[in-house]
Design a binder for these strands. Sequence first.
RNA 1: GCGCCCGUAGCUCAGUUGGAUAGAGCAUCUGCCUUCUAAGCAGAAUGUCGCAGGUUCAAUCCCUGCCGGGCGUACCA
Length: 575
Amino acid sequence: MLFKRIEEHLQSVVAELCPELDHRQVVVRKCPVPKFGDYQCNSILGLAKRNGSNPREVASKVVERFKVDDALCEAVDVAGPGFINFRLKVSALESVMSDPELAAHCFVKPVAEPRTVVVDFSSPNVAKPMHVGHIRSTNLGDSLCRILRYVGHSVISDNHIGDWGTQFGKLIVGWKNDLDPNALEMDALGEMERLYRMMNQRCDDDPAALDLARSELLKLQQGDEENLKIWHRMIELSRKQFDEIYSRLGVTFDETLGESHYNDRLSDLASSMESAGFAERSEGALVVFFPDDKELKDHPAMIQKSDGAANYTTTDLATLDYRRERWSPDEILYVTDGRQQLHFKQLFRAYSKWRPDDCPNLEHPWFGSIMGKDGKPFKTRSGEVIKLAGLLDEAEERARKIVEEKNPDLDEAQKAEISRIVGIGAIKYADLLPNRQSDYVFDWDTMLALKGNTSPYLQYAYTRIQGIFRKAGISAESIDLSGGIQLQTEEEIALAKHLINFPLILQLVLDEYRPNYLCTYLFELAGFLSRVYENCPILKATPGVRSSRLALVNQAGIVIRQGLDLLGIEVTDVM
RNA sequence: GCGCCCGUAGCUCAGUUGGAUAGAGCAUCUGCCUUCUAAGCAGAAUGUCGCAGGUUCAAUCCCUGCCGGGCGUACCA
């Protein structure tokens, strides 16, 4: 990557000329305004300042030396109080663009130090349909897995299913007395949800019903055969429906283990933490205090309830320890709602007390809520949660209408396939585009719009490229770089410069676990591509120019396809 | 009460160790299809970055206070 080579060269010059400055802090970044250059460095400003020297003088000295053996930059100059601006040589750009190996991997080189990363996301609950609340975790987690893998890390995607807890007492009573086998056949999760609601209501009204539910729960926990059988059946049916959703979303997991998988670790865990001396009895419960932490000093982590039962934190600690034993990960990511921030802070702190010597890096990339147009949490008109399956259906139906309108001549199978790709892509892109920490408003019209920063726009940009190949009667795969890419116009140069920045953006995404940077990058890419498309004829160009431009737009197509793939979004050749 | 997050164009939002004239999309207005899919492109217009101080050569970004909103806050997950 050119920017990395510039940065390394610059660092070596600083190390040589100004040993008093820490050259590792010298970083090169993309220029915010193209008119100043392609890349810039403003680290000299702060470093020199802190050191008591004149930033402009230091920068000038560094630039003089930098230029001596630099092959990459057209111009390097000092601007303002000590910015250093770099403008790439077109020849350097062409040589990167024409390198088949670099191009094939979108200019991304595998990371020097691969990490093992466990990503915990999605986490639906048994006997409850997946709903809108699961899409952000699923999309964000899946995208992070894809990006981590693409840059060379070893990733374990792990779906931690909610398959244990007090709700199963009520569910088992409902299952035994009021199960509708036909409904179970048609829509298992819907039927289980109905049973749960019915029992919930009944238990609110009738203490005897609640007692019954409790006793069935106790039987389940003690290993009662019939209850276990029902419970297993509920899990099986639930997972079948989860798998249908994941298949539609194109999301896969390396491991799917329910909370119950960790049951036999829970009691040892509590006693181990208690005997180690940092968990103590308080109001009957076993808790870990964090007196030295401003945020947690009034919020101890509870690892055992006063009745001796485990809670969320207990299972999460057990799960964490299991993951450490099984995979020895360098890092574990928990992709959940922002409302669980306190819980994860407690969990992370408690675990690092328990396993101080081999605690992985624990991160909580949290996200905000999805709102309705009224600014309140996204619900149906009657106030019900919106089920994910229905949401995906509606996306495909809406996309279908647009396809019918724009391209009525396609055959039935094509229309169905395009509607699926466009509809699902629209939901995912709209979900990943905002900063993950923001709440966002769910709006069909915005996400499926044919213009603006949407996935249909990006998918369309891709089909335009494929259209050129169709018209030329050649396949994109047959394009090779043996003739090299020559960049003649401003538009082509701008596109190429943007393309080689792809790895830089992936790094940015991984630094903060924020795929929205990738969305913005792809939208900009589509803009640069459109400008080439408008201003640089390809098929009508002379043979040399034509093959160079074909290779250029093909590369743009590859990066769009790869970039969307990293967001979990598919492309199609025709729209 | 305490803690976390947010307040940026009419609307929805972005904004990379603090950095150059704060950016997109939508909506509005003006052009461009006998020319590789106009699901496109070019251009115009739009701001006390919640308010008030402070630190700095430089603050939307860091610190303090205030106003407004969301969320969390020991036996739910």
